[in-house]
Computed example of a mutant assay.
Amino acid sequence: MANNGASDLSQLIKDIEIEKIQGPSDSKFLKIGSLWESQTVVLHILRRFGCRLCRANALELSKIVPDLESQNIRVIAVGLERLGMEEFLKGGFWKYELYLDEGKKLHQALNLKSLGVFKTLNMILTDKEVKTALQKTKEVPGDLKGDGRQLGATLVFAKGGAVLMDFRQRNFADHPTNASILEACGIDPGLISEITKNSSAGDSQQKTCDTVCS
């Protein structure tokens, strides 16, 4: 979903500080609002580092990061806890900018849902979309450590803070397509090189296999 014009959403979260894990800045912390001061930014709010659906989606999003960065569009991922972060990075599931939001300040400000135990189990066992996604990602290693009930989001902010995409998960398998992210950023998905996509995917998957599966 997109919201044209001035953004109450960007005002709501602009002063929230997140901690740098890997990125270009020398600063240990940055305010969310600094991200869209000079460029468009894709803000990918992760669920759980050990979740194989989250890992598979991070690999999928990674395919278009070079294309986005070539258009001066910044892409960052934000985790909610340190647990599982080292394995996530060593596994090569994400090699771009990564930050932490311990205390889930972003999740709370955005009112992202955290499911109860019964609803979580019911979703895993009976939701067709989740079951299909789990089946498709069965080759991706994962674990059950950490906060498994919190849902995430993918947001795109234009320079200045206008919202170009506001995608919030309805279930654990719910993610925006790469094409929809490119379109929100004003990039025609049809112009993106298949060679670039396939190369990025192959590099990520090989690194994952070499470091996690061995």
Score class of each variant (00 low, 15 high):
180 S>V: 00
67 D>A: 15
92 G>A: 06
34 S>A: 10
141 P>Q: 06
144 L>P: 02
161 G>H: 03
11 Q>H: 02
207 K>H: 13
13 I>G: 04
154 T>Q: 08
82 R>T: 09
140 V>F: 08
27 S>G: 04
177 T>R: 08
8 D>G: 05
144 L>I: 11
15 D>C: 00
193 S>E: 10
21 I>H: 12
186 G>Q: 07
170 R>G: 14
92 G>V: 05
82 R>M: 05
155 L>R: 01
147 D>E: 09
195 I>K: 14
137 T>V: 02
12 L>P: 02
97 E>T: 05
213 C>N: 14
22 Q>A: 07
173 A>S: 11
144 L>R: 13
131 K>T: 11
128 K>R: 12
42 V>C: 11
55 R>D: 14
106 L>Q: 02
98 L>V: 13
113 K>V: 13
187 I>K: 03
173 A>Y: 00
27 S>R: 14
104 K>F: 08
92 G>T: 02
138 K>E: 14
136 K>D: 12
43 L>Y: 03
92 G>E: 02
90 K>H: 12
47 R>W: 07
126 T>N: 15
78 V>E: 07
167 F>D: 07
29 F>R: 06
73 I>G: 01
114 S>E: 12
13 I>C: 06
191 L>H: 13
2 A>M: 10
60 E>Y: 15
63 K>N: 15
131 K>A: 08
201 A>H: 08
140 V>M: 11
63 K>R: 15
173 A>L: 02
61 L>A: 13
174 D>Q: 00
192 I>C: 11
40 T>L: 01
17 E>I: 05
209 C>R: 15
30 L>C: 07
75 V>T: 04
7 S>D: 02
91 G>S: 05
6 A>Y: 14
161 G>V: 01
18 I>D: 00
145 K>Y: 07
36 W>S: 00
